[in-house]
């Protein structure tokens, strides 16, 4: 089983990288683009794990290491492989 983990800056926290990408897109003529938020995407493979225990360890690893919850939110999907 595989977890797809998305980590993004919390709403309201200035994202200088997203802003730079948004401005570039506007310059390229993508006028409809109003905002870009950048984040991180991680794929974590699990071996022989129940979905429930995988889920609790994903939350744990996000809080402990993968995300800094002062500035970042995380969400995840679990995909059976």
């Amino acid at each position: 089983m595989k977890a797809k983990i998305y980590i993004t800056l919390k709403n309201g926290i200035h994202d200088p990288q997203g802003r730079a990408v948004q401005q570039s897109l506007n310059m390229l003529g993508f006028d409809a683009v109003q905002d870009v938020r950048m984040g991180k995407f991680l794929e974590v493979d699990f071996q022989d794990t129940e979905k429930e225990s995988a889920e609790s360890s994903i939350k744990n690893m996000c809080q402990k290491l993968l995300a800094n919850t002062v500035i970042e939110d995380f969400r995840y999907e679990i995909v059976e492989t």
């Binding site: 800056l9 926290i13 200035h14 200088p16 990288q17 730079a20 800094n68 002062v70 500035i71």
Partner: peptide, 16 residues
């Protein structure tokens, strides 16, 4: 900051 000795966090510099 990451270790929690001090509060808050660091973001990228505004001008990158």
């Amino acid at each position: 900051l990451e270790a929690g000795f001090l509060p808050g966090a660091m973001l990228r510099n505004t001008d990158l």
